[in-house]
Design a protein around this nucleic acid. Structure first.
Length: 630
RNA sequence: GCGGGUAUAGCUUAAUGGUAAAGCGCCAGCCUUCCAAGCUGGCCACGCGGGUUCGAUUCCCGCUACCCGCUCCA
């Protein structure tokens, strides 16, 4: 492995290039000029993704007894997105601040009064001088600049003739015609706005801005300025990161629905069906893998943030801490060094949350990402009001350390929201709880209620639950009924695939005897996720016995794992090809296999990608040998 | 969404106002007894649209995509 930190941009370019060259990832719709923020997986990428998907699914479902799978549709009743809050947050008319680009809901701007400062543009002193000197090289620039300075009326005519966009392009080298307008904050002098205006024009590429003309005006009860920054707000326009579509032939507004922006809501919406049809008890989980869509403003970093992506989400439903306390007499909370290996009946949400962070970490270790992980524990200020805790599992990419997975403790927020919106109960009945609660004295019950009331008062975010609601909730609880709480590990499959590729990517420069050096690229995938597990090669192509034997070995292996047969070019080249595809093992059939040395009859060479080590293995042992290492 | 940059073969690059060169790769053949050997032959490109021009891959404009920075990320 290389020790030096490579240039991150060059590193990403190499990875993108390799991905295309070897058939991992291609730009979508490339022959038509592409499609922004969408990427397709080629043959190797599809295998890699499938391996990751299957590893996750196996870890969640088959390796456990307490998690069930679900495969819900991308299209759902739009009421789900209303209930989840997605529509409300993003379907409104939004206005964007011209200074800070912050967005506010158009109907949330309170009327404001005060002094407005306006600057009509600025030019660069140095730039103006320079363009005067450069008149031969750039007469249009000079013309535009001089016109702006000396004859704004004529400049406007020029702008009309060639169009604002062209004019802007010509003039922008030394001049910005952008309008700066802001409402002065109460008690701030005009100079503070001038300072901001200078910064504003600097950010538009003018290093030493001189403002053309300034004016001030008084406004009363205006809704056109950002409540915090004071910046002029742009036109209001609909803003929603959800992709809209129409469900039904008429395609009217009444038929609008959305491509899901996350898979999680389907799990909540189907919670009762799964619970009622599966004979499970809380705690248990429902997991799902599927596509989700977000109309991202800025897709970036290759596949890291795309508009269509695949999520792998688990909703793990647990008892509210109060229920745990009633049943077990105590609630275990996390402390450093706590044993997280086996879930316990007395675990509170905190322990479950830690448990899932631990479980997910083990998963990442099992696919070879263990040593590039970092964790970010959201502070109370970061957290959404309904969330109790959230940890981001981050991974080191060439472009930075970015989120792979979020593990949130969301309380009963989601199921409660759907219960309220749908008017269908999302409660479960817990007989143990009912029986335990029946043994409580009224004083003990009241103590539990008081404890909760105090906790509500101590909340950092959100309104405390009214006492009457708290008492009603406990009444249901004492009868054994509650809406389960949830821990949500939510991972992005495409990000995971990119992380695996970036982690595996390795380049070394090799110099041969003649002093000729070349760059060797190897994808050091963990064998478990490698798209091709094993290459099968006859040592030489023009010896029919070798080819026939190699085809035989290939046939033996290919029904058990993804193998690749290759007989062209030299054996070294074939190894190199597979190195670049990340294939961990290569099997070579040589003359000894055919019995040139009788003691080696029916043995093959297995070559390991990472060490170049070679092992002589009996063909009859080969499958087992390989499977033990995958 | 804003600002800056880039766009030539599968990949990496070159040259040019008169239709494009190379390396690597890939394919076929020969050869080759284990880490990108060699020989022969072959395939494949100026992102899209418009303008200027006798002629545009080259100059100009627009679009699209990607990269960088800002913004956003429920």
């Amino acid at each position: 492995m290389s020790d030096t930190k490579p240039d991150p941009i060059a590193q990403m370019e190499k990875i993108v290039s390799l991905c295309k060259r070897r058939g991992f990832i291609y730009p979508s719709s490339e022959i038509y000029g592409g499609c922004g923020g969408v990427w397709d997986y080629g043959p190797l990428g599809a295998e890699l993704k499938r391996n990751l998907r299957e590893a996750w699914w196996r870890a969640m479902t088959r390796d456990r007894e307490d998690i069930l799978g679900l495969d819900a549709c991308i299209l759902m009743n739009p009421a789900i997105w209303k209930a989840s809050g997605h529509v409300d947050t993003f379907a409104d008319m939004m206005r964007e601040c011209s200074l800070t680009n912050k967005r506010v809901r158009a109907d949330h701007v309170e009327p404001q009064s005060g002094t407005v400062y306006i600057a009509d543009g600025a030019f660069s002193e140095e730039g103006a001088k320079r363009s005067a000197e450069m008149q031969v090289a750039s007469p249009e620039l000079l013309a535009a600049n001089i016109l702006q300075l000396t004859n704004p009326a004529l400049a406007n005519k020029l702008r009309e003739r060639i169009g604002a966009a062209s004019f802007e392009v010509i003039a922008q080298k030394g001049i910005s015609l952008a309008r700066f307008e802001m409402l002065l904050p109460q008690g701030k002098p005009r100079e503070s706005a001038q300072k901001l205006a200078i910064e504003f024009y600097k950010s538009r590429g003018i290093p030493d801005p001189v403002i053309f003309s300034e004016e001030t005006k008084q406004v009363t009860d205006s809704r056109d300025y950002h409540p915090e920054s004071g910046g002029l707000l742009g036109e209001s326009r609909p803003f929603n990161l959800m992709l809209r579509t129409y469900l039904g032939p008429t395609a009217t507004e009444a038929d609008v629905t959305y491509l899901r922006p996350e898979t999680a809501q389907a799990i909540f919406a189907q919670f009762k069906n799964v619970f009622d049809s599966s004979r499970v008890k809380v705690p248990f989980g429902i997991c799902q893998i599927g596509k989700a869509f977000r109309n991202e403003v800025t897709p970036k970093n290759f596949t890291f943030r795309s508009r269509e992506f695949e999520q792998m989400e688990l909703e793990f439903f647990i008892k509210p801490d109060e229920a745990v306390e009633i049943i077990s007499g105590e609630v275990a909370t996390w402390s450093e060094g706590a044993d997280l290996s086996e879930p316990q009946a007395n675990w509170g949400w905190d322990m479950w949350h830690r448990y899932w962070v631990d479980q997910r970490t083990k998963f990442y270790q099992s696919i070879g990402l263990g040593d590039v992980l970092e964790y970010y524990w959201q502070t109370p200020a970061d957290l959404a009001h309904y969330a109790r805790a959230c940890v981001d599992i981050l991974c080191e990419f060439p472009f930075g350390t970015e989120e792979l997975e979020g593990i949130a403790a969301r309380g009963a927020f989601d199921l409660t929201a759907h219960q309220n919106a749908s008017t269908k109960s999302q409660e479960v009945f817990d007989e143990d709880l009912k029986n335990a609660a029946a043994k409580l004295t009224p004083e003990q019950k009241e103590a539990l209620i008081q404890k909760r009331l105090a906790a509500e008062q101590a909340k950092v975010k959100g309104e405390p639950m009214p006492e009457a609601d708290v008492r009603a909730w406990f009444e249901r609880l004492f009868k054994g009924s509650y809406v389960p709480h949830v821990i949500e590990p939510s991972a992005g499959l495409d990000r995971m695939a990119l992380a695996v590729i970036a982690k595996a990517f390795d380049e070394t420069v090799k110099t041969d005897d003649k002093g000729k050096s070349e760059t060797i690229t190897v994808l050091r995938f963990h064998p478990r996720v490698a798209p091709i597990k094993c290459g099968v090669f006859p040592l030489l192509k023009n010896k029919p016995e070798l080819v026939a034997k190699a085809r035989e070995v290939y046939a033996l292996l290919k029904t058990h794992m993804n193998c690749f047969y290759d007989e062209t070019a030299s054996i070294g080249r074939r190894y190199a090809r597979q190195d670049e595809a990340g294939t961990p093992f290569g099997v070579t059939i040589d003359f000894d296999t055919l019995g040139e040395k009788p003691e080696l009859l029916n043995t093959v060479t297995v070559r390991e990608r990472d060490s170049n080590a070679q092992h002589r293995i009996q063909i009859s042992d080969l499958l087992g040998w390989l499977q033990a290492r995958l």
